[in-house]
Design a protein around this nucleic acid. Structure first.
Lengths: 136, 136
DNA sequence: CATATAGCTTACGTAAAGGTCAAGATTAAA
DNA sequence: TTTAATCTTGACCTTTACGTAAGCTATATG
């Protein structure tokens, strides 16, 4: 087995590539979302392709509204870093199903909130036109 | 003009009635959402019917997902005590409309997230059954 | 060598919406 | 009147996701 030349990058470049700050990356490491990556002699962090993928995955989930805390729970059961899909247990499926449920719940809540806002809105316009009493 | 006996209540009772804490009510006063209400001799806050209506209004908006900060902007224009209800509504409608948009956006995002999770899930089950390659 | 640039750790700051004491003053009830 | 309940202000605590600054090290370049 030969190591293919890992073209790792440093934190500043990685941050720039992804449009985030170095603080953010270090923070994710701090809270255990990014495992500790390799360091150069002086302690400089180094990120290989897998690390980058993992970070992108985190950002993707975040973009879609999953909190870092939720990701931490996921991370306990699902080590994105080193495991290939073949080794993933059914536990992950369970977690994903749970998340689908949560998302469904959130969607339902928002939909009902939307309804209320719309209803409230039209009550106000009614009031403005004198079609309804001011206080219910 | 005769003052009808104003049956004012104190903060503890009001909080209990509305299912919030006294801290919350004082906080709303602190940030200028509730105007300063009358006080008894010892400094005890006293809330009349209008004050209660105003607080209920605040809670309603909050329930609809409008932040206290947004309400502060509104508060400059709405003086429920002065019955200038008509003047606040255009701004309020604007804010409500903005909220409907935001909620729609969130729903769309969650729906897409849901799709992705579902897709991700089935990719994994496929892998577990050897029907698909391990790496995308 | 000197400077510039990038990185490191430690640690305090921020916003939102209150929670939670603390210590004292007042009011209500017995 | 004594006690118990309620109220007052003030001030620090909490969570989330980083921002920002201080002080120090390492690497690159003129």
């Amino acid at each position: 087995m030969q190591k293919t030349a890992e073209k790792s990058i440093q934190i500043g470049q990685l941050a720039k590539n992804l449009g985030i700050t170095t603080r953010t990356i270090r923070y994710y490491e701090e809270i255990g979302l990014m495992g500790a990556t390799e360091r150069l002699g002086g302690g400089t962090r180094t990120y290989n392709r897998d690390d980058v993928l993992r970070l992108k995955f985190i950002l993707k989930l975040k973009e879609l509204g999953i909190s870092l805390k939720e990701m931490q729970e996921l991370a306990e059961n699902f080590d994105i870093n080193q495991q290939s899909f073949g080794t993933i247990t059914p536990k992950l499926l369970e977690i994903l199903d749970g998340h689908i449920g949560k998302v469904d719940q959130k969607i339902a809540n928002l939909a009902s909130l939307r309804k209320e806002i719309v209803a409230y809105r039209s009550r106000i316009t009614d009031i403005l036109q004198g079609h309804a009493p001011v206080v219910r």
